[in-house]
Design a binder for these strands. Structure first.
Lengths: 124, 124
DNA sequence: AAGTTAAATAACCACCGGGTTAAATATACT
DNA sequence: AGTATATTTAACCCGGTGGTTATTTAACTT
């Protein structure tokens, strides 16, 4: 009922070309040649990337004459978001600790200033 | 200054064994043998998976006598969350459209009922 | 010093992923 | 029918990945 899409999704996302294609598709449908333009890469290479994205369910393709426009398909991205969300507490915890650390630094700095202030006045 | 970690992170996450290891580490540090227990897999295989996770910056390892406890390292997961967040509007939009669709179905259903009600009474 | 446990490394194998070039297919245009 | 454009498929290369078994290293134990 709920097959594990995560492996193929992550595998598809593990390539900068494919992530760039997704980013492009975020601003609307596009045919293959247009998707290929930014890349110094042959058409078959792009075609393969698109197949990977399609099999992962990250894009869907239609037909318009000889063009095959691609569009973003968001559900698998939501699955990624849901998955990573389970770990949120870990990075927020880390940020908290960083925050504590910075506060502590600030505190020490203030104490240093107080000391300085208490000292004999510097020359200038 | 900000190297692209996403590719190695996604690649590391594209394996169910490695995701299971991360899930285990979410409940605390563990040495290699304990991480290996749930899997029907040789120790070197686990060792390789851990190396992949470590190189991706998803875990960190320390030393305690002959044990090498692993702990979750959250920053790369945060990068994943931040990345996928850019696409949030797409799945929320899709859900909205689904919602619209369901509302419309409901509406038609109501209209059908009204028609039925207006018609000659059915047999039973 | 010898033995035990934890873990990593070496060497190997099969397969897959990302790229190429060349050829095939699909659709539109004239 | 013939040509042009868009895209895919085929065949190939190479390096990386995921697994194995056998060996080695590291640290503790007796």
């Amino acid at each position: 009922m709920s097959p594990d899409h995560l492996s193929s999704t992550f595998a598809a996302l593990a390539d900068p070309t494919r992530r760039a294609i997704l980013a492009r598709l975020a601003s609307g449908e596009a045919p293959v040649t247009e998707l290929a333009k930014p890349f110094d890469m042959s058409m078959p290479a792009i075609s393969k990337h698109l197949k990977v994205l399609e099999h992962a369910g990250l894009i869907a393709r239609s037909r318009d004459a000889q063009w095959r426009p691609c569009r973003l398909e968001a559900s698998r991205l939501k699955e990624v978001a849901d998955w990573v969300e389970h770990y949120r507490r870990f990075w927020e915890q880390s940020l908290d600790r960083l925050d504590d650390y910075l506060r502590q630094l600030k505190h020490q700095e203030l104490k240093t200033k107080e000391k300085k202030h208490g000292r004999k006045q510097p020359k200038h």
